[in-house]
Amino acid sequence: MAVLPELGLVRSSDLDEVLAAVGHDYAPYAGGTELVPATGLGLRRPAAIVDLKRVEALKGIEVDAGAGSVTIGAAVTHRRLSDHPGVREHLPTLAAAASRVGNARVRSTGTVGGNLCFAEPRSDLGCVLLALGATAEVRSARGARTLGIDELILGAFETSLEPDEILATVTVPFEPPGMSYWKLQSYERPTLGVALVVTEDRWEITVGAATERPTRIVLAAGDTAGLAAFVDGLEFSDDMTGPPDYKRSVLRAHLDQTLGATQ
């Protein structure tokens, strides 16, 4: 049934109060675009939800020109991310990807943190953030720790977060020259996402959506053999968006077009 079970609600603007509440049966909640359907389907059974939307510390977008990075709060919506002048200036590929996440309703309520912490493989942000070398700050009542995106996202719907931890912020270095993100999206979620950073001597390739978690490789420019081996070695998911052979073929075609021959 679409009817949600009755849930408790913890709501505070104080980060420490929020962190004290989050736990195994107390699910952090921001946009709800993942949690609400999962709860409606009975996949998640929290006793209560802990609202993060009123915590200012989780809602900021700070541009640090000195460090050359942008720090984004976990409760920032895709829409705010894509509309933010600083993000558009320093992280244009991320802003563009955020502007094409899901649909208008998802973008206006769904958040960066929710997107990463549910670790839905068919997603854009994880791929783009991994390509950008972003780091995640994770907080709990016990303290804080900093992780790379590939240390946060371990697999399909699997992260390294402990039950009492939340993602607080993501810090993203300014976008390097030569970056692009392309995706094939036939359904509600992407079938395949490819983030590239191409310079004179380097090919940085990050593949998302079609694999259990975003996968990144750095090759010397022109290393077509290495590129082919990377593509051949990827384990593509087999789901409604297509069989593995299809995804591999589409990836090859895209890389052929953007980088040159891969086979």
Binding site: L184, S186, T191, T241, G242, P243, Y246, S249, V250
Partner: peptide
């Protein structure tokens, strides 16, 4: 005629 089906 989904993309994977047309691809095949």
């Amino acid at each position: 005629l989904t993309p994977p089906r047309v691809w095949s």
